[in-house]
């Protein structure tokens, strides 16, 4: 069968590199950790119990969720007007603006964090400037503000591109129709354009949320030890503590939380707004 021949290489890659590792992760998360022997094969829910019984770990999950939700909300807030302007732009500036949005994607999150480090660090731009002006400094490093700013700056281009491509598919004549029927531009936008962007908004929001839940470099560099999120915690358990079973459990908890929340959010969009 032609379809099978076309699809099987790709499906093989996914099953081998995603299916098998995840199955193994699930199995390992039920093993027991021992400081000397590292891993003892057994079947126990102890790793999960430990996570949910310890306020520290639950707190980390809550922080991660909070940061991801806040970053997603902010990305949509800033992304929607920018995406709308881009989508309705017709001049030659459009290419330049698109390039400016795409370019940061290539630079990578680690390297882009350098800019924020300069701004937020002790003795950095904000701190230094305030110190000279007022005498007292302001350290933003290792605060939720710093981490959320960092994540928003990394995810925003993705959100803008997703929203922009949705808005491009909305006929500008719809806005003209609304206007000719007596709706001033702002009102026309909320009554006509906004409902039609909902599917794209959901896609963009989910993408941003997953990226934020998963963020490693930003909380690691801007959050430091005082501001723990799931991804750095998992890596720490793996590399420093060598506690693979617990790291596996953390990975699955993170994955389950992400999947459940994204599934819930796509149910929130009414059917009729899904573009035909």
């Amino acid at each position: 069968m032609a379809a099978a021949a076309l699809l099987s290489p790709a499906l093989f890659v996914v099953l081998l590199m995603l299916g098998a590792p995840l199955a193994l992760l699930l199995r390992f998360s039920l093993d027991r950790y021992d400081p000397t022997e590292l891993m003892i094969e057994t079947l126990t829910g102890a790793n999960y119990l430990r996570f949910f019984a310890d306020p520290f770990y639950v707190g980390v999950l809550r922080t991660t969720l909070g940061v991801a939700v806040a970053a997603t909300a902010l990305c949509l807030l800033f992304g929607l007007p920018i995406a709308y302007r881009l989508a309705r732009m017709t001049s030659r500036w459009k290419t330049a603006c698109m390039l400016a949005i795409v370019l940061p994607l290539f630079v990578g999150s680690t390297v882009r964090m350098v800019g924020w480090l300069i701004l937020f660090a002790h003795g950095g731009m904000i701190d230094g400037a305030l110190r000279r002006l007022t005498g007292g400094g302001l350290e933003l490093m290792y605060t939720p503000f710093a981490v959320i700013s960092g994540i928003v700056s990394i995810n925003l281009p993705f959100v803008i591109l997703t929203l922009q491509s949705t808005i491009e598919t909305i006929d500008p004549r719809l806005e003209e129709a609304a206007e000719s029927l007596g709706a001033p531009p702002g009102r026309g936008f909320w009554r006509v354009v906004w409902p039609l962007t909902l599917p794209g908004t959901a896609t963009a929001g989910i993408l941003c949320f997953i990226l934020a839940m998963n963020a490693y470099a930003t909380p690691y560099l801007l959050g430091g030890p005082r501001f723990q999120m799931m991804a750095p915690l998992l890596y720490w358990e793996f590399s420093t503590n060598n506690n693979w079973p617990f790291a596996a459990a953390l990975g699955l908890i993170l994955m389950a939380t992400t999947l459940i929340l994204t599934a819930c959010s796509s149910l929130l969009i009414p059917r009729r707004y899904r573009v035909a």
Binding site: D171, R173, L174, E176, A178, V192, P195, Y273
Partner: peptide, 10 residues
Amino acid sequence: VFQSYALFPH
């Protein structure tokens, strides 16, 4: 009345 009608699809 637009050529494409421009009805609000939602």
